[in-house]
């Protein structure tokens, strides 16, 4: 038996909304330690990795008697989650050898209980080994700022060059019709921690990435006040949105290089 009771259905809604356009079907791997999801987009350019820990406060109850994999069409899951109120408590339930995933939505005042079943899918996807590495540079910034930068620069070109150096981080685009650049300096005088821009730098990095994917990742902006960008030269960037009281959602994006 698997049963996970999440206090805020809005968190699950936001996660699925941020994934469903790039990742059509995905396996939720459930174990006693929590729920993980790893999926790669069809063009092998982007990968998402979700971790929801069972011992965090976001779950009111969590039970997973044996490890199970729930293969779900994310478009369908998005439709089901739209049937939940934002303040509803959502319970996910499945048997040990499941064909069906059940969603139960309890309204805050317990006056309305709704239940939906969806059929599970066999999804043949191999898990990739993502090495734990120390990155040359980790940028922490407000998530809405990163969203704005990606949106602004995507007006002029397909690729952004991210340049991390000791003064801060530069985002540059060069298209056929024009170019743009946004410089962010490290902030030290901002009151709120979530408004700060910090750059942990071991080595400077200059790397280009497809804006189409970065813009898609920023659909997760409402999950978190801050976003962390981890970069190393000639390796995929990690765009991480911490999820309070649950864990995190990470996106990996392969770089573009000059031939």
């Amino acid at each position: 038996m698997f049963e996970a009771k999440m206090l805020q259905s809005s968190v699950l809604k936001k996660i699925i909304e941020s994934l469903k356009d790039l990742f059509a079907d995905a396996n939720f791997d459930c174990s006693s330690s929590g729920i993980t999801l790893q999926d790669m987009d069809s063009s092998h350019v982007a990968l998402c990795y979700l971790k929801l820990r069972s011992d965090e406060e976001g779950f009111e109850d969590y039970r997973c008697d044996r490890n199970i994999t729930l293969g779900v069409n994310l478009g369908l899951m998005s439709k089901i989650l739209k049937c939940a109120g934002n303040d509803d408590v959502v319970t996910l339930r499945a048997e040990d050898e499941p064909n069906i995933l059940t969603f139960i939505f309890d309204s805050k005042n317990s006056e309305r209980v709704s239940k939906y079943d969806i059929k599970l899918m066999e999804i043949d996807s191999e898990l990739l080994g993502i090495p734990d590495t120390d990155y040359s540079c980790v940028v922490k910034m407000p998530s809405h700022e990163f969203q704005r930068i990606c949106s602004n620069l995507s007006q002029l070109g397909d690729s952004v060059t991210i340049d991390c150096h000791k003064e801060g981080v530069d985002f540059k685009v060069a298209g056929e019709q024009g170019s743009g650049a946004i410089k962010l300096k490290q902030t030290t005088s901002v009151d709120k921690e979530e408004d700060q821009v910090t750059v942990q730098l071991n080595e400077p990095v200059t790397q280009s990435f497809a804006l189409k994917f970065l813009c898609a990742f920023t659909k997760a902006t409402s999950l978190s006040d801050t976003v962390n960008l981890s970069l190393t030269q000639d390796t995929p960037v990690v765009v991480e949105y911490p999820i309070a009281q649950h864990g995190y959602l990470r996106f990996y994006l392969a770089p573009k290089i000059e031939e």
Partner: peptide, 13 residues
Amino acid sequence: QLTQLDLLKYFKE
């Protein structure tokens, strides 16, 4: 001209 690299190049074991 930039070329998009494949993620499998990094993560495939």
